[in-house]
């Protein structure tokens, strides 16, 4: 209980919200809208997985939304050119990994603070994309949407992909040496080095992984609609960071659990539609998201101060 108190309290908040919704707005649980809402969250979930690793490693990446945009356009153009989806996916992930590698090199190789590095790359990729694409949408050939499946099966495929990925990542973080090394580096990079771990390699690795996952997420996003919106990644970094922070990942590294992030993302993603169903204006979404982030860090701050005094 004690160990997962933070994750469980977020889960309790989610359950509470769902119970309230069940009482007041049973329409929330109708299958097709629910499925659509869940599908819409799959890219965010995949990015949040990568972001969690970066934060556990005591770094941050706010360029992931821009990376997502670039990957989406790469994937869209290749798909529009008629290449098979598997090639599209690989190319998109490779593009993401390359952008992640640049971040990782600047942070791990040159020792620059990740916040400023990714701020700079965020602006650079975003503007390069605007310059290249001029905001134009890309029309996709017919077979791309939902992988050419029926909508519901396509949605289920997407959700299943994201959940399998999450499960694998959570398993790897717990059971692979590499996963444990991420925690060790985030806790104390110097001690990790003394224990024979290569902190630079690990840091570079999590940035590359996040980039690749952004590429995957972008590909899974373009199959959801007949067109590619080059601005689709806007605000994604914030969503992913918010999910991680709300889900109990410590912003100063070393602590966090992917299942907690999953619950955190579901909570944040439920708030907005819940507002609509509860007849609160939807414009409050961002404000509430900010408030939830602040509440989470304040709660963690108070907890750690109490713990420190012990």
């Amino acid at each position: 209980m004690g160990k997962y108190f933070r994750e469980l309290s977020v889960a309790a908040a989610l359950v509470l919200l769902l119970v309230v919704l069940a009482g007041i707005a049973p329409a929330f649980f109708e299958l097709q809208p629910l499925l659509s809402r869940l599908t819409a969250q799959t890219p965010a979930l995949i990015v949040a997985v990568g972001m969690t690793l970066v934060i556990i490693c005591r770094q941050i990446d706010i360029s992931v939304g821009s990376q997502f945009g670039v990957c989406a356009v790469v994937a869209g153009l290749l798909a529009a050119a008629g290449l098979p989806l598997s090639v599209v996916l690989l190319a998109s992930m490779a593009a993401g990994a390359a952008m992640g590698a640049l971040n990782g090199w600047l942070v791990a190789g040159l020792g620059l603070p990740s916040i400023v590095v990714t701020l700079a790359t965020m602006v650079t990729w975003q503007e390069a994309l605007r310059l290249f694409q001029q905001g134009k949408f890309i029309n996709l050939p017919a077979g791309v949407q939902w992988f050419g499946l029926a909508q519901q099966r396509g949605q289920l495929t997407l959700i299943a992909t994201a959940v399998v990925l999450l499960t694998c990542a959570a398993w790897a973080m717990k059971n692979l040496a590499a996963g444990r090394h991420v925690y060790a580096v985030g806790t104390d990079a110097e001690a990790a080095r003394l224990a024979g771990i290569n902190p630079r390699g690990i840091t570079l690795g999590v940035f590359i992984l996040l980039g690749a996952l952004a590429g995957l997420a972008a590909t899974l996003n373009i199959v959801q609609s007949p067109q590619v919106d080059p601005k689709a990644g806007g605000g994604l970094e914030l969503k992913a960071i918010a999910a991680a922070v709300v889900g109990g990942v410590a912003v100063n590294g070393g602590r966090g659990n992917l299942w907690g992030v999953f619950v955190g993302l579901l909570l944040l993603a439920t708030i907005n539609p819940a507002l609509t169903y509860l007849h609160v204006e939807a414009y409050w979404e961002k404000a509430i998201q900010g408030l939830v982030i602040l509440l989470a860090v304040v709660a963690d701050g108070i907890r750690s101060r109490k713990g420190g005094a012990k």
Binding site: Y283, A287, V297
Partner: peptide, 30 residues
Amino acid sequence: LITGLRLPPLIVTLGTFSLFRGLAEAITKG
């Protein structure tokens, strides 16, 4: 928040980044 609870400025201002913009949107209904 930063000095009282010794929270990292990055994450506090990330929260208020969202909160302030959100309040502006809520007031103007977007």
